[in-house]
């Protein structure tokens, strides 16, 4: 085995890794923001808000990520007549898909706080949205932090799906170098090691947060 092939192509590989990180980070920030609104909708007492939120979550969670990516890649341009760059297409698909998963985590976090905290907040004259923002969500976030970190790891692993529509993320970059240099074993071993380090660190962080919830105060 000749691992110098990795060193020779490190810049190209790191560019792919940065692209994967970029996709993961944008996905996490945007989908988590949307997820907060959907989760609040999921626990709303108004059916007109609760039902659409539930439909969104269940529809997205019942489909594989790759299908959602295909949807945005093939069907949206057909309907709108416009094609978007690969990164944008994948990002939109990822944000929509992971918003549904994050929404369920946030919902369970909100429900773990309990309605009596909302009642206490309302009784002091805070509005419902202030109670949510200042009292419920900070506590919910603390309770759901381990699950959130685990989901972030899944998002990062999920970035490999972008390969199928030709986006040059880390796995795609690795595979391009492997084909060009005919050194698949070294390169895929390297890719596995990189994913292992990143995902293992994330999983350990989730475990640590699980055990030390009070640190998140």
């Amino acid at each position: 085995m000749d691992f110098s092939v990795i060193n020779d192509n490190i810049e190209f590989l790191m560019l792919g890794l940065m692209r994967s990180f970029q996709l993961a980070i944008f996905t996490i920030v945007l989908s988590l923001t949307i997820a907060c609104f959907i989760a609040i909708g999921r626990v709303s007492s108004k059916r007109s808000i609760r039902y659409p939120s539930a439909i969104f979550v269940n529809l997205l969670r019942s489909n594989p990520l790759i299908l959602i990516v295909f949807w945005f890649f093939f069907l949206v341009p057909l309907i709108t007549g416009k094609t978007l760059p690969e990164f944008h297409t994948v990002l939109i698909a990822f944000v929509v898909f992971f918003a549904a998963y994050f929404a369920e985590i946030v919902r369970s976090g909100i429900q773990s706080v309990g309605s009596s905290q909302v009642k206490a907040a309302l009784s002091t004259g805070l509005t419902y949205s202030q109670s949510m923002r200042l009292i419920v969500l900070p506590q919910a976030l603390r309770n759901m932090l381990p699950a959130l970190v685990t989901e972030c790891v899944i998002v990062f692993q999920g970035t490999t799906i972008a390969y199928v529509i030709g986006m040059r993320e880390f796995l795609h970059s690795t595979s391009l170098v492997a084909e060009r240099t005919v050194r698949p074993v070294e390169l895929y071993l390297f890719a596995a090691l990189v994913y292992l380090v990143i995902c293992f660190t994330g999983t350990r962080l989730a475990l640590f947060l699980e055990k030390n919830k009070e640190l998140a105060r």
Binding site: S116, K119, A121, P138
Partner: peptide, 11 residues
């Protein structure tokens, strides 16, 4: 209002 289980904000 004062509640049976205090309902202080723990965070």
């Amino acid at each position: 209002m004062v509640f049976q289980h205090f309902e202080l904000y723990p965070h």
